[in-house]
Design a protein around this nucleic acid. Structure first.
Lengths: 121, 121
DNA sequence: CGCATACTTAACCATGTGCTTAACTATGTG
DNA sequence: CACATAGTTAAGCACATGGTTAAGTATGCG
């Protein structure tokens, strides 16, 4: 049920501001390696390595034509991230739902103990 | 406009499977450090360090009462992640929208050149 | 007080990450 | 062919990460 090893790679890819900048640039459309590197304050090999991390995470796909490599964004992996977040939120909300019914079923004579009971559900 | 330095910490916190497991556990409700550590195949100090990473990212908040530290999940940061993802998707969709209107405005006599023109928008 | 419990801190170690510069490999162009 | 262009690879370096064990600090209980 939990084969979320790919999430390691996606989250790790996105935890670096340079790589998020690359992703943001690629949402505007495909670009070559040097086009992507141009605005960034680092060497071309550095950008190349960041792109490898992004490709490893499947956030970016690329193909080389002639001597130019064109990189494109792959949104599928952002869906995977969103699915994980949604699943956590779902569990969280379900817990709060059970909490409400539990509190509603309580005798209303113990208002002072609510804060303690609340978190034990 | 882009003060997303917090995203570094959140994505970095979530890129480790142990820490995601901790987050998943905490969606079920608050827990102490040893409760969180019990099912994990590592020492207590290791878990303690993971929790520090999660707290640094603001995904987890904790308070110590007596000698027990109780950890709770903080969903706000998941919203921040989701906002970033939504923003990327929005740019992406807007680009595809422009692409559609551009293609619709094209003279229909050049079907073979579509694949080339497509990505230059 | 004496001892267990629940962390917490410190020191250490192996690997991984994010750069750098230098050198190498195509691939177009005049 | 000569030369520029666009990547790519390799080596090295500083620092971060994820674990370990050992020792230290409160706190609660009999």
């Amino acid at each position: 049920m939990v084969k979320y090893a790919e999430l390691d790679l996606v989250f790790q890819a996105l935890c670096d501001p340079t790589r998020r900048a690359l992703v943001e640039q690629l949402t505007l459309g495909p670009a070559s390696v040097s086009e992507l590197a141009a605005p960034l304050p680092m060497s071309l090999p550095a950008v190349h390595q960041h792109l490898k991390v992004l490709e490893r995470s499947a956030l970016v796909r690329s193909e080389k034509v002639g001597r130019v490599r064109t990189c494109r964004l792959e949104l599928t992996m952002l869906d995977t991230v969103q699915d994980w977040i949604d699943a956590r939120r779902a569990t969280w909300e379900r817990r709060l739902g059970r909490l409400d019914t539990y509190l509603a079923a309580l005798p209303p004579e113990t208002p002072a103990s609510i804060n303690q009971e609340k978190e034990q559900v």
